[in-house]
Design a protein around this nucleic acid. Structure first.
Lengths: 231, 231
DNA sequence: TGACTTTGGTGACGAATTGTTACTAATTCG
DNA sequence: CGAATTAGTAACAATTCGTCACCAAAGTCA
């Protein structure tokens, strides 16, 4: 404790190369898919995440919006930071540090993609190791936060059926849910409100459309939960 | 959709100044406290978070360990990223981007602090606006993740009493918990195991010491919880 | 010594929540 | 029309949770 190295003295910033790597996620064909862009000729991998350096004085979420828009044609409505990555894994632009940002796009948003394509998360092509890490962490983050944050609602259009909502949860959680329990829990949470629209989707009874509309939370403070640990 | 600006073309990294800002947290005097270091003469605020630029090829957590060690004399055992911050709030070293990293120190760890001091979170002195944001986000992160991650156990020594554990939870959650419920939930989680030590703390019955020792989780997959939304 | 206080620890009961089964409703298909 | 398909719910059983009541083992103090 006494003979510690006296290093601190002067903190100092150094110049670093920084990239914002955007993980655009959307349910496509019954799987969670990520948007990749075709890499320029000569790159080691054929596909990369949309990325760029932030412009001077540009906030990170603004950079993510700009980057996502440029490949998607429209700005996603929802972003969330995944983390900063500075290990030695290779980045396609050799950035020292990557900021990973997840963007969520609802189902059904048709996109005119020139040089980009949706890939289901379990059928990813080869991407740079840094990008692979960012994608994996983004997916893990979304799956882990799905019941603390209205992420699932960001993967659906404004109006949706309860079956669609349940499907998104099943997609994210990777397991089937029980219909009655799901609806009872949703009801009790006051997170959605019914619209007066109904949708007939081929066979079967038409479903009522709902919208996300969180009400004042009733302050029912519950006890501590030890069963939610993920590590 | 058709006439979108054709900006993407060439992604490129630019040089940026980067800082790692470390939020060292520990329960001190029945409150969650953060470690601040005295700022060099001439700085606008008298106190700052421990911070520095990362060394070339240094991983962010390694940088955080180095920075925390240099003011604390020992490396914290636990780190977690808080996020990246690039808005225009002023950083003491005028870094363009800050990576906020939380470090947790157990109670009872005595530290020989020359130029540093513990401040309870609700009695913070003036710090640079960027640092204020990082501290607030770190505290919010710890409070929010306390029941998904064994954060509370990182704020206690290896061996602890159940009352101490409950106190840490009460500190983090900001409310009293019911003893019997707390212990029943803990029991059911198989997260701790008793040691054969007991501690007599002045008056009252001695308490058994426990250690954190998470067992294989029984795969009791519960339903979706809509009551944990925080926004 | 022996009440009283203080802190640790647990059993048990009613209330609330959750998992499940089974049913009804509204539509398409043949 | 009846079978198939999807939506939506009532109701019951099993489990979990909040609480109260109590017992245990120490220190305090007359």
């Amino acid at each position: 404790m006494r003979d510690r190295p006296l290093v601190p003295l002067k903190a100092a910033v150094r110049k670093t190369t920084l990239a914002v790597d955007v993980v655009v996620l959307s349910p496509r064909h019954d799987a969670l898919a990520v948007l990749l862009v075709r890499a320029p000729a000569g790159a080691r991998e054929r596909w990369t995440l949309p990325w760029d350096g932030p412009l001077p004085d540009e906030a990170l979420e603004d950079a993510a919006a700009r980057i996502a828009s440029s490949t998607l044609g429209a700005a996603p409505a929802f972003f969330e930071q995944v983390g900063a990555f500075a290990d030695t894994r290779r980045h396609p632009g050799d950035a020292d540090v990557s900021i990973g940002i997840a963007a969520l796009i609802p189902t059904g948003v048709e996109t005119s993609l020139d040089d980009a394509e949706w890939f289901p998360l379990n059928e990813l092509p080869a991407v740079a190791p840094r990008h692979r890490l960012v994608v994996d962490r983004a997916a893990a983050m979304v799956r882990q936060r799905v019941d603390q944050s209205p992420l699932a609602f960001r993967l659906l259009p404004q109006n949706f059926t309860l079956s669609e909502l349940q499907s998104v949860y099943e997609l994210l959680l990777g397991r089937r849910l029980h219909k009655a329990s799901f609806r009872r829990a949703l009801q009790a949470s006051y997170l959605v409100e019914p619209t007066d629209e109904w949708r007939s989707e081929g066979r079967g009874r038409p479903a009522q459309l709902f919208r996300y509309s969180p009400k004042k939370r009733r302050g029912a403070r519950r006890g501590v939960r030890f069963d939610l640990f993920s590590d």
